[in-house]
Design a protein around this nucleic acid. Structure first.
Length: 423
RNA sequence: GUGGCUUUAGCUCAGCUGGUUAGAGCAUCAGAUUGUGGAUCUGAGGGUCGAGGGUUCAAAUCCCUCAAGCCACCCCA
């Protein structure tokens, strides 16, 4: 156990037993995204630090205390990406995608990095599946994103996810609301928690994130932004709700849902799941970010998207149904050392015909070999002992049926194909 | 980043108020059965007791520091 190298804090090994779940997550993501006409994109694992400082926002938790930042040899500041949207928007403009028919629909999955205190479902290195729809402000694209995410869960046969929805307005109505919120809280400042007082100054909307019971009562009676949206924002929100209802996607209006990244405007949403437990109950979330492109110095361009936590979804998936690792078609065994090379070669010829073969080296008692074949889950065992070798035959045993036949070597492939095909 | 709990075999955990060679179940390997499997029985291997330091004749056990995990805060995926 004592070793010079220990797995770094907040990281995880995705072991063979985990892989079937991850394969399912990735396959379902690719399937649903492409069914909606999204195209895959992958951006670098690290980016210029400034991309996140300007994109995500200086005052956010992510930028102020959670980034893995380092310098390259030229002294440039780089950061392991803490989120996907700013890099995607950067890539959109770098590749000239604003010249393609709009909107441009993109999806991606990969590792992200945030230096928070690790917890179950919260890692320094975590994985997201995300989509971004850039170049069109239609609220139906907000709904498309939400439906796409919902369908991802459905494709994985995950039940019990809930959708939480809010609108946080735009640069027209939010500043006025922010002041109204400050006016509401100002007389109660002395009673607020210390953290909440800091939020009052920096970003009053984040006051809704507080779980401090002291702040709870104040939160309940606070003015709601959905009651103070400007006309275009209100209309967009109405369309979102109407379309979700038409698609029969149940949602819960949550006026306290504000989200911690600066770039969100109008629609924000989050998927939650009970079985994740109290604090880390968010499977994913997203929203519209019409101000992000301009904040990064590009031409103002609307966008909407989500990021799903693959690690957390894997946790839910494991609870909902067991996945077993793929089993080999054939488990190849020689009973005596002198026949090993022969069996090794038979295995190679089968693999050349797309059959999955595990070769078990070393002589051993037959029952031990069969035990290993069974534990490995093989469908067939290929057995060669002295008796077979003498007659130029091999034994093929159906591990499930517990039946076996001896066949001439030249009939090996056809027999195996037939037995695999028939089962 | 703050607080609480935890860390003993590959895994799940015993180990009382400090006392010689640290245990169990599961798993692994072998034998029982020198050519027929997931069961059973028998046996074996596997631990510097998270790391480092201290107290003591003696530390898995008491103290300190550090690390990691979990829970809550914070926040998000």
């Amino acid at each position: 156990m004592a070793s010079i190298a220990q797995r770094p804090r907040g990281t995880q090994d995705l072991l063979p037993a985990d892989q079937p779940y991850w394969a399912a997550l990735e396959a379902a993501a690719k399937d649903v995204a492409e069914r909606f006409g999204y195209q895959r994109i992958e951006t670098p694992i690290f980016e210029a630090t400034d991309l996140f400082v300007r994109g995500v926002g200086e005052a956010t938790d992510i930028v102020s205390k959670e980034m893995f930042t380092f310098s390259d040899r030229g002294g440039r500041s780089l950061t392991l990406r803490p989120e996907g949207t700013a890099p995607i928007v950067r890539a959109y403009f770098d590749a000239g995608m604003q010249l393609q028919p709009q909107p441009v629909r993109l999806y991606y999955m990969g590792p992200y990095f945030r230096s928070e205190r690790p917890q179950a479902g919260r890692f320094h290195e975590f994985h997201q599946f995300g989509i971004e729809t850039i170049g069109d402000a239609s609220p139906l694209l907000d709904v498309e994103a939400i439906v796409l995410g919902w369908n991802w869960f459905a494709g994985l046969e995950i039940a019990g996810a809930t959708l939480h929805l809010n609108s946080i307005g735009d640069e027209v109505c939010r500043p006025a609301y922010r002041e109204r919120l400050r006016d509401y809280y100002r007389p109660h400042l002395a009673r607020l928690s210390e953290e909440s007082r800091a939020r009052f100054e920096r970003n009053p909307l984040r006051l809704f994130d507080s779980k401090d019971p002291q702040d709870e009562a104040l939160k309940r009676d606070a003015p709601r932004i959905v009651d103070h949206l400007c006309a275009p924002c209100a209309e967009a929100f109405r369309i979102v709700k109407e379309a979700l209802a038409a698609e029969e996607i149940p949602f819960e209006l949550n006026p306290n849902l504000v989200r911690g990244l600066d770039y969100y405007t109008r629609t924000v949403f989050e998927y939650q799941h009970e079985s994740l437990g109290g604090a880390q109950n968010s499977l994913g979330g997203g929203g519209r970010y019409d101000g992000l492109a301009a904040a990064l110095g590009y031409r103002s361009t609307p966008g909407v998207g989500f990021a799903m936590g693959m690690d957390r979804t894997a946790i839910v998936l494991k609870q909902s149904k067991p996945f077993t690792p793929a089993a080999p078609d054939v488990y190849a065994v020689a009973l005596e050392a002198k026949d090993e090379l022969y069996v090794f070669h038979l295995a190679a010829t089968l693999r050349a015909r797309r059959i999955t073969v595990v070769f078990d080296p070393g002589p051993a008692r037959l029952d031990a070999k069969l035990r290993k074949a069974a534990r490995r889950g093989a469908r067939l065992a290929l057995l060669v002992g002295p008796e077979e070798r003498e007659k130029n035959q091999v034994v093929i045993r159906d591990m499930q049926e517990k039946t076996q036949t001896s066949v001439a070597e030249r009939d090996l492939l056809s027999t195996i194909s037939q037995m695999l095909g028939g089962a």
